[in-house]
Simulated assay, not measured.
Amino acid sequence: MCNHGKAAWRSNGRGGAVNIKQVRYVCAIMDLGSFSAAAAREGVSVQAVSKAMSELESSLGEPLFERRSAGVSPTPLGRAFAVRARRVLDEWEALERFASAPAAVASSPFRMGFCCPAYPGVDRLVRLISTVTGKVLGRRVDVELLECAEGLDALRAGRVDGLITVGTLEADDVACTPLGTVSSDVLVPLDHPLAAKGEVTLDELAGYPVLYPCNFDHYCHAVVDEYLKRGLRSEVVRFSVGDAVPEPVADERCYSFIFVGNITGAPEGFVIRPLVRGDALSVPICLSTLRGPGGLDHVSFRRALSRLSLFA
C-alpha cells in the first residue's frame, strides 16, 4: 500500500519541488568535495551552488553537507540523498540526450582520441575511460591512443569528436577544458639503482637518462620539459616510439615519467616510484574539441570522467 502521507520529494515553503539543478549540484559536490569545484564543473558561480543547496536543505529541514574550511563532507542524509540523486541524474541526462537527437544517440558513438604514449598497461586506462564514460553518457564511447599531431589532424577532419591530452593543447581553432590534474611518477627497471627506494628526488634522478618520445612531443612538453624547468639535470634521450630501442634503454639505465600508475600499473620487469613531495609536479589533463556549435558537450563529458576518480 502506498504511503501518500509523506512525499518522496518534499516541497519547499514556496510550493516548489526539488529540481534537477539541485540534484545535479549535489552529485557534483559529492564527486569533488567542495562547492567551488562543483561550481567549476557545472559552469556556474559558487554563489549559485550555495544558494541552490541552502534552498534544498531548507525544504528538507536538515543539512546535506557539513561546511568546513577545507571543504564539505556529507551528512547521513546527504549520503542517502546522493545515492538516489545519482540514479535520477543518470536517467535525466540520458533522457535529455535522447530527446535532443534520438537517432544519433541510438546509433552514433563518441569517438575520442587519447594523446599519450602507449605505456604498457595504458590500454587498461583506455578501456576504463570508454566503459565508465559510456555508461554515464548512455552512449558508446570509442577511445583510441593517438600521437598529438595525429589526434589534432583527426579532430579537424572530423574523425574524432574530442581529444584527451596530458597538458593544455593550444590551438586557435580548439577549445581546451581542464578536467583536473594527476600526479606524475617515475618508471624504472627492477634492477635500476633507484628501484629499491620508496621515493625518489630530482637530485637522485640527475645521474640517469630520461626518455623523451619525440612523436609524443606534446606529452613531453607537459611533463619532461616542465621537470627540466624545475631543475631536473638528467640527460635527455630522444627517440620515437616504434623505433629501435635506444642504447641507454637497452642498458636499463633510463627512466621515464608516467602518470596514473595506480591504474596502468608497472609493466613486467619495472616498478613505479613516486617523487618526494615538493619535487613532484601535478600534470593537467584536458578535454579538447573544435570551437563552434555542435561540438562535444564539455560539461557532460567532464562530469562523466569525474566518475573515474582519477583526477584531483
Rank of each mutant, 00 (worst) to 15 (best):
P117D: 13
A118H: 10
A118Q: 13
A118I: 07
Y119Q: 00
Y119V: 03
Y119D: 01
P120C: 06
P120S: 08
P120M: 04
G121K: 05
G121A: 05
V122P: 00
V122A: 10
V122E: 03
D123M: 02
D123P: 02
D123R: 04
R124E: 01
L125E: 05
V126P: 00
V126L: 03
V126G: 00
R127C: 02
R127F: 03
R127A: 06
L128Y: 01
L128H: 05
L128W: 02
I129P: 04
I129T: 05
S130Y: 05
V132A: 11
V132C: 09
T133I: 09
T133H: 08
G134Y: 10
K135Q: 12
K135N: 15
K135W: 09
K135P: 06
K135E: 13
K135L: 12
V136W: 11
V136S: 14
V136N: 08
L137V: 12
L137S: 11
L137T: 11
G138T: 10
R139Q: 15
R140F: 08
V141Y: 12
V141I: 13
E144Y: 02
L145W: 04
L145N: 01
L146M: 13
L146W: 00
L146D: 01
L146Q: 00
A149H: 14
E150I: 01
E150G: 12
G151L: 01
L152Q: 12
L152N: 07
L152E: 10
L152G: 01
D153A: 15
D153G: 09
D153K: 14
D153P: 05
L155V: 06
L155K: 04
L155W: 01
R156K: 14
G158V: 11
G158F: 08
G158Q: 11
V160H: 02
D161L: 07
G162F: 00
L163P: 00
L163R: 01
I164K: 02
T165L: 06
G167Q: 04
G167C: 04
G167Y: 02
T168N: 06
L169K: 01
E170H: 15
A171D: 15
A171P: 02
A171L: 06
A171W: 02
D172K: 07
V174Q: 05
V174H: 04
A175S: 14
A175G: 11
A175C: 13
C176L: 08
C176R: 08
T177D: 09
T177N: 08
T177E: 12
P178L: 12
P178R: 11
L179D: 01
L179E: 01
L179F: 07
L179W: 03
L179T: 03
G180L: 03
T181E: 09
V182E: 07
V182F: 06
V182G: 03
S183M: 08
S184F: 00
S184Y: 03
D185L: 07
D185F: 04
D185R: 05
V186I: 15
V186W: 06
L187D: 02
L187W: 03
L187N: 02
L187E: 10
V188L: 07
V188W: 02
V188M: 08
V188H: 07
P189L: 12
L190V: 15
L190Y: 08
L190T: 13
D191W: 14
D191G: 15
H192D: 09
P193Y: 10
P193L: 10
L194T: 09
A196S: 11
A196T: 08
A196Q: 06
